[in-house]
Design a protein around this nucleic acid. Structure first.
Length: 591
RNA sequence: GGAGCUGUAGCUCAGUUUGGUUAGAGCGCCUGCCUGUCACGCAGGAGGCCGCGAGUUCGAGUCUCGUCAGCUCCGCCA
């Protein structure tokens, strides 16, 4: 070994250790050569230590130190002393290491960007040099949080008697849900494994086996388009329990979440969490994951407009649609152009247009006012609780569409008006419950499970199962924090006949159900206990704790929005030989 | 599958509206000076396929079309 091993870490030394000698290892963060005095900032993951060379007392070392550049890895030794001019901004700012000697362990090319917290660099270069980006404290701290989450989880669930059990990564492709990633089998030519979208069926089967409390940090894979909070591979804290009801899951998860927030942020979370029905979430907030940190709730005015002369409204009413509004307080100053942009925004969610009323300096300013009677206008003003200075945005559409549009506008206006900024340090935890069991898929012309097809219907709704399936509510629940879905789960079906019925309702023929899910159906015949569970999005939890808007900030090696890993170049073409072994031949793209 | 924004020095960006001499700034980098810096300071210097390809034009960083990449969003994501 031609370097000296560290006896301390950069961020750990302080006043208490002054007078002692240490060896440090780390990366050169910056060199400030004052001529008669050389300062070097040495960085490791624990912090920064200032090194000093005094040319007056060690001319040789000072001369040698001219070789030192950013991001060289060095070892160095010297005595810790108090600084004559301390820097209170640094945790280690009261001390410095007076060097007796140092050595370069490994040189570095000039990095393509500076390794500093406060500089912006384009995403592509940061991802190409991910190892350099990951040297920044601003990113490292997220992985320290992530680790805190792992450790809290392991301890918490171990103490509760949960068993951590791994489930297969290579499994059978399932027809429901997201697009599968497929893995060809060499031994079984022409056949494919799929990567799990979640370990759902395996964990249910573990319940049948009697492992009544299961947990796993599960890697999941979904071949769908990416978003700022979605990667094709992501991590779930996957949980399942036997002989429980949904309340048991609520209590367990609330306790766990409270522990996480305490351990990571030292915040005391108020329990129990609020519960809101899906229907209510949609009606009041236009979302199944409402952000409850602020108001601006949706107001239904369909009834008030039932005799309205305005054709847009009357047609919507005739088609059983919804006319509703939100009141953007103090936004009457919005210009025509700004409102046009809001209209464009609404159109992304399928709006045909957007009506508005400005209560501007005592006057009502609205292109639709002339179509409304005084009574109609008054009732809008009253229901919206509109005052001078307010801007009312009105959506009229098919019911769910209208609500979704207003839900999106509500969030957008909260952003634009600085409301989100005001509540950015608040946390609002709640459960959304009583989801519909099915929703109708227009494209496939069939019912699909809103959660997944193993979700139990509410027992009091079972009477509708043969007559009116769209009326069925699911025993499903989502954990929602600040408008983000951090997890979701359900009470599962543990009876073979009900499971078969559900498959039938989503359009799976008996043979298909047998072919795709036969192993689950069979397992349910062998004394399956009642069971329920949940999956928490670990990446999103870390995002929330780290207060970052982007999932790339909490995944060590993430992919770009087109699913590419720039650093290693995945996905890539493969050798003809590899394809041949797999009996795969590529279709040449036509030009 | 669709929409929007962005692409100019190693990095961050200006210049594009209205085409016209040698494409600028800050940071970083290189050389020298500097004894308390920590966003060190001072002096000097190097550094450009204006994403790529066509087109319009006497002339394109600037206009048009195409294309690629990154980001954000809609669809999609049980």
């Amino acid at each position: 070994m031609n370097w000296k091993k560290r006896t301390a870490k950069c961020g750990e030394l302080n006043k208490e250790q002054v007078g002692k000698s240490y060896v440090l290892n780390g990366w050169i963060s910056s060199v400030r050569n004052m001529g008669g005095l050389i300062f070097i900032d040495l960085r490791d993951r624990y912090g920064i230590m200032q090194l000093v060379i005094e040319p007056e007392n060690n001319a040789e070392l000072a001369e040698k130190a001219k070789e030192l550049k950013s991001e060289y890895v060095i070892w160095c030794e010297g005595k810790l002393r108090l600084r004559t001019s301390p820097n209170p901004k640094l945790p280690t700012g009261y001390v410095e290491l007076l060097l007796d000697n140092y050595g370069v362990i490994n040189k570095s090319e000039l990095p393509p960007f500076e390794i500093a917290d406060d500089i912006e660099t384009n995403e592509e270069i940061k991802l190409r040099y991910r190892y350099l980006d990951l040297r920044r404290h601003s990113l490292q701290k997220n992985f320290i949080i992530r680790n805190r989450v792992y450790q809290t989880m392991h301890t918490f669930f171990d103490e509760k008697g949960f068993l951590e059990i791994e489930t297969p990564i290579l499994m059978k492709s399932t027809p429901e849900g997201a697009r599968d990633f497929l893995v060809p089998s060499r031994i079984n030519k022409g056949k494919f494994y799929a990567l799990p979208q979640s370990p759902q069926i395996f964990k249910q089967i573990l319940m049948v086996s009697g492992f009544d409390k299961y947990i796993q940090i599960a890697k999941c894979f979904r071949d769908e388009d990416l978003r700022s909070d979605r990667q094709p591979e992501f991590t779930q804290i996957d949980i399942e329990m036997s002989f429980v009801e949904k309340e048991d899951i609520f209590e367990l998860i609330e306790e766990f979440i409270a522990k996480l927030w305490k351990n990571v942020l030292n915040i005391d979370v108020k329990r129990p969490f609020k519960k809101m029905k899906y229907q209510e979430a949609m009606e009041r907030f236009g979302s199944d994951k409402p952000d409850l940190r602020f108001g601006m709730e949706i107001v239904d005015i369909t009834e008030d407009m039932k005799n309205c002369e305005f054709k847009v409204f009357s047609e919507v009413i005739a088609n059983n649609g919804r006319i509703a509004l939100i009141n953007a307080k103090n936004a009457a100053h919005y210009s025509r152009k700004q409102i046009d942009m809001l209209t464009e925004f609404a159109k992304k969610y399928g709006a045909k247009g957007l009506a508005y009323i400005k209560y501007d300096k005592g006057e009502i300013n609205s292109p639709i006012a002339k179509f409304l009677t005084k009574e109609e206008l008054d009732s809008i003003t009253e229901k919206a609780n509109a005052q001078d200075g307010d801007l009312i945005l009105i959506s009229s559409d098919e019911k769910e569409r209208a609500l979704i549009i207003l839900g999106a506008l509500r969030l957008e206006m909260a952003k634009q008006l600085g409301i989100i900024e005001k509540v950015k340090d608040d946390f609002s935890f709640h459960w959304v419950v009583d989801f519909p069991l099915f929703e109708y898929d227009e494209e496939e012309k069939r019912y699909v499970a809103m959660h997944h097809p193993f979700t139990a219907p509410k027992s009091e709704d079972m009477e509708f199962i043969d007559t009116n399936p769209e009326k069925l509510s699911a025993q499903a629940y989502d954990l929602v924090v600040n408008g983000a879905e951090l997890g979701g789960g359900s009470v599962r079906i543990h009876e073979n006949d009900i499971q078969q019925k559900i498959f039938k309702l989503i359009g799976l023929k008996e043979e298909e159900a047998e072919e795709k899910f036969g192993y689950l159906l069979k397992a349910l015949k062998f004394g399956a206990p009642p069971h329920a569970g949940i999956a928490l999005g670990l990446d999103r939890i870390v995002m929330m704790l780290a207060k970052t808007e982007n999932i790339r900030d909490v995944i060590a090696f993430p992919k770009t929005t087109s699913g590419i890993s720039i650093m290693d170049g995945a996905p890539s073409e493969v050798d003809e030989k590899q394809l041949k072994e797999l009996h795969i031949c590529l279709i040449k793209k036509e030009v």
